[in-house]
């Protein structure tokens, strides 16, 4: 176990350093640089102004030197300084990370819970109207683009019905505190969570249903039934337990996107998360911020994968570590 962990940490380190170097070089391929963009936005015609900015940002140095500066900074825990915002990158990311984690975490729980529930229901009532309804809906949500669902749900629930706020994370200027604020945020959380989660709900539904049906036909289920085990218990302990593995695999993929996977949703719902930070940074060529977000994303993916590998053993004890 210790060996396994050490080995994985070593590999993770190599992967992350590789990601940093690759990202760094890829970003440099994009035309334009932050100094030119800042000057462009200011309507500047002074080339010396642009040169000053480049020097201050360290962009006048050769690329390998810039890369080395960045890498050595990251290894000592310094993610650099945002050219544009004049704020340390880590501060920017930490300010925005909680909002994203709240949203993606809520969407993760939402889609896993509803997906498995619908999947089990559909499998248990195979061939009935309920089954057709669930599978049809799942197919629709699987096939519909995220932004369209977002716009339509804003149109219906915010504008026509007026039930849910169309954007923002909380009521700005209301000054709520304590539980009132929690409720307010929860109210604002509903639309983006459902929008972001529906796609995975559809996937979990279909996976759970298919996997359940497969397991339901196996001999040990028949044996359990012949033994007289109650139907509920068979589904829960015998079927679901054995059918959950593919769902678990997919859930680990969704978990890997906890940080970077909500750009569209954050944009439509004005959610102050990290996806928007990344998008803005890309447009403005704010390299350190972009690299910082990529780095955090890569770390989350690596960590989630590691945890997944460990949890596989819990979910299915037949799986060995080595």
């Amino acid at each position: 176990m210790l060996n396994f962990t050490l080995q994985r940490i070593g590999k993770a380190f190599v992967v992350i350093v590789g990601v940093i170097i690759l990202n760094f070089l890829l970003i440099k391929l994009a035309p334009g640089d932050p100094a030119a963009i800042l000057a462009g936005e200011a309507g500047s015609g002074d080339p010396q102004f642009v040169e000053n900015l480049r020097r201050q940002f360290g962009l006048d140095q050769p690329v390998p030197v810039q890369l080395w500066n960045y890498l050595s900074g990251v290894l000592t825990g310094d993610l650099g300084f945002s050219y544009r915002n004049q704020v340390p990158v880590l501060d920017l990311i930490l300010q925005r990370l909680p909002a994203t984690l709240l949203l993606t975490g809520a969407a993760f729980v939402f889609s896993l819970a509803t997906g498995m529930l619908f999947g089990v229901l559909a499998a248990r009532h195979r061939g009935t109207v309920l089954d057709s309804m669930i599978t049809t809906l799942a197919l629709i949500f699987y096939a519909t683009p995220l932004f369209w669902i977002a716009l339509m749900s804003v149109l219906l629930f915010s504008i026509n019905l007026g039930w849910l706020p169309p954007f923002d994370m909380e009521t700005i200027g209301a000054g709520y505190t304590g539980w009132r604020r929690v409720l307010d945020i929860a109210h604002h959380l509903i639309l983006p969570t459902v929008t972001l989660g529906l796609f995975y709900t559809a996937i979990y539904t279909r996976l759970t249903r298919a996997s359940m049906l497969e397991v339901m036909g196996l001999d040990f289920v028949k044996t359990a039934r012949a033994k007289g085990v109650p139907g509920q218990r068979i589904i829960r302990r015998h079927v679901l337990r054995n059918a959950v593995l593919p769902v678990f695999t997919f859930a680990s993929m969704q978990a890997g996107q906890l940080v970077g996977g909500a750009i569209l949703t954050e944009t439509v719902f004005a959610w102050p998360g990290i996806g928007r930070l990344m998008f803005d940074a890309l447009m403005q060529r704010d390299y350190p911020v972009l690299l910082g977000v990529f780095l955090i994303t890569a770390i989350v993916v690596v960590v989630v994968n590691f945890i997944t590998d460990l949890l596989y053993r819990v979910v299915d004890p037949r799986i060995g570590i080595s």
Binding site: S158, P166, F167, D168, T267, V268, F269, P272
Partner: peptide, 16 residues
């Protein structure tokens, strides 16, 4: 009080 709100999507701004 002045509140300058950040709403990144043009359609959402129109709704606002």
């Amino acid at each position: 009080d002045l509140y300058f709100r950040v709403i990144p999507d043009a359609a959402s701004r129109a709704i606002a």
